[in-house]
Simulated scan of single mutants.
Amino acid sequence: MSSYSIEEVCQHIGSDSLTEKDLIVKKIASLKNADSDSISFFTRSSYAEDLKTTKAKVLIMREEDAYLWQGMTIIHPNPYLAYAKLTQLFNPRKRPEPSIDLGAIIGKEVKISKTSFIGPFNSIGQLSVIGEGVVIESHVSIGSNVHVGDNTYIHANVTIGDDVVIGGNCEIYASASIGTDGFGYAEHNEGNWEKIMQTGSVIIGNNVDIGSNTVIDRGAMDDTIIQSGVKIDNQVQIGHNCNIGENTIIAGCVGIAGSAIIGKECKIGGAAMILGHLRIADKTTVSPGTMITKSITKSGEKFTSIMPFLKHSDWLKFASKLKQFGKKDD
Rank of each mutant, 00 (worst) to 15 (best):
C170G: 15
I112H: 06
N157V: 01
N192P: 02
M1D: 13
K328M: 03
P96Y: 14
N241Q: 05
S123N: 11
K21H: 10
Y153M: 13
S287T: 04
Y153L: 12
E187W: 09
G255R: 04
G103T: 06
I268N: 05
E246N: 15
A66N: 08
V134I: 15
L31K: 05
L310S: 02
G103N: 12
G191H: 06
K114F: 10
H12Y: 11
H312G: 03
G71D: 08
A260E: 02
H240C: 02
T304M: 13
E7C: 13
D329T: 03
V129I: 04
I261A: 02
I292N: 04
E190K: 11
S201L: 07
S141A: 10
M307W: 06
I74F: 12
Y173D: 07
G161N: 10
D233P: 01
F325W: 13
N169V: 13
D314H: 01
G71I: 01
L68C: 01
E8H: 14
K108S: 13
P77G: 04
G245T: 03
G179F: 05
T54L: 12
G168D: 11
V202Y: 11
L68K: 14
K27V: 00
T214Y: 11
Y4W: 10
Q237C: 03
Q11M: 11
A56K: 01
S313W: 05
S123K: 15
V146H: 04
G184S: 00
A56D: 05
D329G: 00
A29K: 05
V165M: 14
E63D: 13
N169F: 15
I160T: 05
W69P: 03
V58Q: 03
C266V: 05
A34Q: 06
I296S: 11
K327F: 02
K298W: 03
L102Q: 09
S15A: 05
P120E: 07
S287H: 13
V140L: 12
S141R: 07
I204W: 09
Y67W: 07
S175P: 01
I160H: 06
S228H: 11
D35W: 15
G133D: 07
C242S: 03
D162T: 08
V230G: 07
G179M: 10
G252N: 10
P120Y: 12
S3L: 09
A66E: 08
D150K: 15
F183M: 00
P98A: 09
E109M: 04
M273C: 05
L23F: 14
C170S: 12
M1I: 07
T180P: 01
K302W: 05
I136P: 00
Q126M: 12
N151L: 09
G229V: 10
K94I: 15
H277S: 02
I296R: 14
T87P: 10
Y80M: 10
V25N: 00
V230Y: 12
E132W: 11
E97Q: 15
G184N: 03
S138G: 06
K231L: 15
K264D: 04
I292G: 01
N243Y: 04
D314Q: 05
C170T: 15
N189Y: 06
S3E: 13
I24G: 08
V215G: 06
S40T: 04
G205R: 14
W193E: 00
P120M: 08
I28W: 02
I142C: 05
K108C: 09
Q126V: 07
G200S: 09
A319F: 09
A82P: 09
T248Y: 13
L51Y: 01
L316D: 00
G182A: 01
E190V: 05
E63G: 08
D223V: 00
T248M: 12
S201E: 07
G255W: 13
D16F: 03
